[in-house]
């Protein structure tokens, strides 16, 4: 009888340990506070865009027709690939594969740079057409939403390059390195997910 009870308690303990192991907090509380705050701010701007769009639906449609959907779509794919490479880099870093993690991170930075180049070209094209943030209400929101996002990408790409270089140089990856990498990866995924909403909202919805 006592053997049965021992076995049962052992099973319970194993289940409890499994549950604690399953729950893993990516990054720390501070980075999540920043990310969720940032995401909430963007949500507010998304709703403001939608609200003003209701009032001037035809103007918004005409202005939207001037945007380059192909560049926006390629940028979406760039950021998705970049995010996926960051996931690969983090997995490799956890296994201690510094070089593999470094190359994945460099690839992610490359896709991020591609995004910046295409977005800059798009802004230049708009400037050549004498379109700026004061042209009409649509472009006010176009420049606020894409501009704030562009700013996030411009901060993120050097961060990815920094990770790539430091991983390439490191011979041993410590737990602190992995924790730092996790925070950077979370930031970059947030940049990706914000673009996933900005693109259809500004460029696609009829």
């Amino acid at each position: 009888m006592s053997t049965y009870e021992d076995n049962m308690s052992a099973v319970k303990e194993t289940k409890a340990t499994d549950k604690t192991q399953e729950k893993h907090m990516p990054g720390d509380e501070m980075i999540w506070l920043f990310l969720l705050g940032d995401m909430a701010c963007f949500s507010l701007f998304f709703c403001m865009f939608a609200y003003y769009r209701l009032d001037e639906i035809e103007l918004f449609r005409q202005s939207q027709a001037q945007l380059d959907v192909n560049i926006g779509s390629i940028n979406t794919l760039f950021l998705l690939c970049s995010s996926w490479l960051v996931v690969m880099a983090l997995k490799a870093a956890r296994k201690g594969l510094a070089k593999y993690a470094s190359f994945s991170m460099a690839g992610a930075a490359l896709f991020g740079t591609g995004f910046v180049i295409l977005k800059t070209l798009e802004y230049q094209h708009k400037a050549a057409l004498d379109i700026d943030y004061l042209s009409n209400n649509f472009y006010v929101f176009y420049y606020i939403l894409t501009g704030m996002h562009y700013f996030h990408v411009v901060i993120g790409v050097p961060l990815l390059i920094y990770y790539a270089v430091s991983l390439y140089r490191s011979k041993h990856i410590s737990q602190t390195d992995v924790d730092n990498l996790e925070s950077g990866a979370l930031y970059w995924h947030m940049v990706d997910l914000l673009w996933i909403i900005i693109f259809p909202l500004v460029y696609l919805i009829p």
């Binding site: 907090m25 990516p26 995924h189």
Partner: peptide, 8 residues
């Protein structure tokens, strides 16, 4: 990607 599926 952000591993929130396994988060608290």
């Amino acid at each position: 990607f952000m591993e929130v599926g396994h988060a608290p």
